[in-house]
Design a protein around this nucleic acid. Structure first.
Length: 470
RNA sequence: CGGGGAGUAGCGCAGCGGUAGCGCACCUGCUUUGGGAGCAGGAGGUCGCGGGUUCAAAUCCCGUCUCCCCGACCA
C-alpha cells in the first residue's frame, strides 16, 4: 500500500532531506541555546565508532592523549596576532564566576593551541624532548551565526592534535602523515567517503598556520565539505609562547609545530555522502550495528531461531543485534532500520524457517534474497564487504561525474553550480580567488595535476579544485 | 548585522472577533503481525510574552522576545 514518503525526497530539497534524516533516524535535536546540539544515542554510537578508529590510527603515529582545560585566559589568545584575529568573532567569553566579575575574562576554547603551547614551553627543554606529540578529545565552542546540525554548531566534539618538532622538515612530514595515514585512510577505508587531499590557499588557511592541508569530500548535492585539516604552524606559536630547545650543539632554537583536527562534522558528511531517499546508509566498517536480525513473527519457534542466529553472528565477530519487537508491525520496523542505515537485515519468520531459509536484505542496493540457514554467516560477511566497496565506488563515481576541467574563472563558477571544477591555479591567482568568493564559490584545495600534494603552498603549476561548500 | 517568513497539543498544521480544532504520535482494550495495521475508547493546550481596544481576543492594535529561511566568517 502506497504511503507518503518517509523523508522529503533528496532531489527535491536537499537541505530539507538532511534535516528529515537527522530527525527521523534519531540522530540529533537542537539544543536549548541556539546553535547547540543534543547528540542522540544512535549518532553518539556512530561518533564513538569514529573515535575508536581514529584513536587507533593517531596512536600509531606516536601521539598520546591528554586533556587541557576548557577555559583559557583571554590574554593567551592575543599572543598570536593572526590567531586572535581569526577567532575573536566567534569566541564565547566568560566575564563572571562565583558571583563576581572576573579580573581577567576567560574564553571558552575555540581550539587549544594557546593553552597547550603555554605548557609545551615548560615541557620542552632539549632536542631529546622532541618530537612532542599530543592529542586531545574535547568539546570546543565557536559562536556560529548560521548553525546546522553536525555541520556547523556552536559547540562541537572533536579531536585536536598538537605537536612540536626540532625541524621544519620533521613538522611538515608529520602534518602530511596525519593527513594521509590517519584522516584520508580513515575516511576512505572506514567511512567509504572518497576525499581529495590538498593544500589550502593562503586565504583559506587556519588562523596562525603557515600551511593547511585538507581532506575535501563531495556531498550528494555536489557541494564540498571540509572533513578534516592538518596544519603546519611553523614557529609562529613557538615564538608567541617561547617554546625553545637546545639542539645537539647547545644552541637555542624555537620548535616547529603542527596541529590537526576532525570533528562531529564528519557525521553530517557521512549522511550527505551516502544517504538516499530511504535514509542513512552506513558503511559496515563504521556501523555500530552491522546486521539486525528481524523476527517477523514469534510463532513456531521462530523467536528462538532468530535469537540463536543473532548469537551466532555475534560470536563470529559481527556487530549484530536482534529486533524481536513483534508488537510493532514488520513494515514499521523495516522502515526504521532503513532510516538508520543498518547495512544488512536478516528477516526470520516461521514460513520461510520451515523451509530452512531466511531473507537477507542489503541496504546499499535495496535488494532482498533468500539464503539457506546454514549459509547465513558466509552470506552476511560477503554482503558486508560488498556494501563497503559499493558505497565507496558509488561516491567516487558521483564525484567524478560532477567534476569538470575548466580554463577560466567564469567557467569555474558555472561548473561549481553542480560540483567541482578543476582549473590551473595560475589562471586563478589571488585576484581570481576573490572573484570566485564574491560569487559564493571557493578554492577547496590545491593539488598537483596527478592529485598529489603540492610541495609548497600556492605552487604555480598546481591545480585548484573549486566548488561551493558547506 | 541587512532582507523574507513563522510562533496554537510531542511533531506538522487549520482556525483570523462569539464554547480550542485536524493529521500523525501517545495511553487502554480487542483483532492483527511477510513493507509505516484496523476498530473502539481516552489523555493532552493560561493559542510565545506584556499591554491595549471590545460585552467578548488565538483572531484587531501597540510593544517585546524567540525561532526558521536567504546574504558577509568557520571543523
Amino acid at each position: 500500500m502506497a504511503r507518503a514518503p518517509v523523508l522529503t525526497p533528496r532531489g527535491e530539497d536537499f537541505p530539507r532531506w538532511y534535516q528529515d534524516v537527522v530527525a527521523k533516524a534519531e540522530l540529533a535535536d537542537n539544543g536549548p541555546v541556539r546553535g547547540t546540539m543534543v547528540i542522540r544515542p544512535y549518532a553518539y554510537a556512530i561518533w564513538e565508532r569514529m573515535q575508536a578508529e581514529l584513536d587507533r590510527r593517531i596512536k600509531a603515529t606516536g601521539a598520546e592523549n591528554a586533556y587541557f582545560p576548557l577555559f583559557i585566559p583571554e590574554s593567551y589568545l592575543r599572543r598570536e596576532a593572526e590567531h586572535v584575529e581569526g577567532f575573536s568573532p566567534e569566541l564565547a567569553v566568560v566575564t563572571h564566576g562565583g558571583g563576581k566579575e572576573l579580573e581577567e575574562p576567560v574564553v571558552v576554547r575555540p581550539t587549544s593551541e594557546t593553552v597547550i603551547n603555554s605548557y609545551f614551553s615548560k615541557w620542552v627543554q632539549s632536542h631529546r624532548d622532541l618530537p612532542l606529540l599530543v592529542n586531545q578529545w574535547a568539546n570546543v565552542v565557536r559562536w556560529e551565526l548560521r548553525p546546522r546540525l553536525f555541520l556547523r554548531t556552536t559547540e562541537f566534539l572533536w579531536q585536536e592534535g598538537h605537536t612540536a618538532h626540532a625541524t621544519q622538515a620533521d613538522a611538515a612530514a608529520y602534518a602530511e602523515r596525519i593527513l594521509a595515514e590517519v584522516y584520508e585512510d580513515f575516511m576512505v577505508e572506514v567511512l567509504a567517503v572518497p576525499v581529495l587531499t590538498g593544500r589550502k590557499t593562503a586565504r583559506e588557511r587556519f588562523a596562525g598556520a603557515i600551511n593547511t592541508l585538507t581532506c575535501e569530500a563531495m556531498m550528494g548535492d555536489g557541494k564540498a565539505l571540509q572533513m578534516g585539516t592538518s596544519h603546519e604552524l611553523g614557529q609562529n606559536f613557538a615564538r608567541a609562547f617561547d617554546i625553545t630547545f637546545s639542539d645537539e650543539t647547545g644552541s637555542q632554537d624555537h620548535v616547529w609545530q603542527t596541529s590537526w583536527g576532525v570533528s562531529t562534522r564528519m557525521v553530517g558528511g557521512l549522511i550527505m555522502c551516502h544517504g538516499d531517499d530511504a535514509g542513512l546508509r552506513l558503511p559496515p566498517a563504521l556501523a555500530p550495528t552491522q546486521v539486525v536480525v528481524v523476527l517477523v513473527r514469534a510463532d513456531e519457534g521462530a523467536g528462538d531461531a532468530a535469537a540463536a542466529l543473532c548469537h551466532q553472528l555475534v560470536a563470529s565477530g559481527v556487530r549484530a543485534s536482534l529486533d524481536d519487537r513483534v508488537g510493532t508491525s514488520f513494515g514499521r520496523r523495516s522502515v526504521e532500520w532503513e532510516l538508520k542505515g543498518v547495512p544488512v537485515r536478516v528477516e526470520v519468520g516461521p514460513r520461510e524457517l520451515a523451509a530452512g531459509w531466511v531473507t537477507l536484505v542489503e541496504r546499499h542496493v535495496a535488494t532482498k534474497r533468500p539464503v539457506a540457514l546454514a549459509d547465513v554467516g558466509g552470506e552476511v560477511a560477503t554482503a558486508l564487504a560488498d556494501a563497503q566497496r559499493h558505497l565507496l565506488a558509488e561516491a567516487t563515481r558521483h564525484r567524478e561525474e560532477r567534476t569538470v576541467e575548466v580554463g577560466s574563472v567564469d567557467e569555474a563558477v558555472e561548473a561549481a553550480a553542480g560540483g567541482f571544477a578543476r582549473i590551473p591555479w595560475a589562471v586563478v591567482g589571488t585576484t581570481g580567488e576573490g572573484a570566485l568568493v564574491d560569487q559564493g564559490v571557493s578554492v577547496r584545495c590545491l593539488q598537483r595535476a596527478d592529485g598529489g600534494l603540492p610541495g609548497a603552498s600556492e605552487e604555480p603549476e598546481s591545480v585548484a579544485v573549486v566548488g561551493r561548500s558547506y
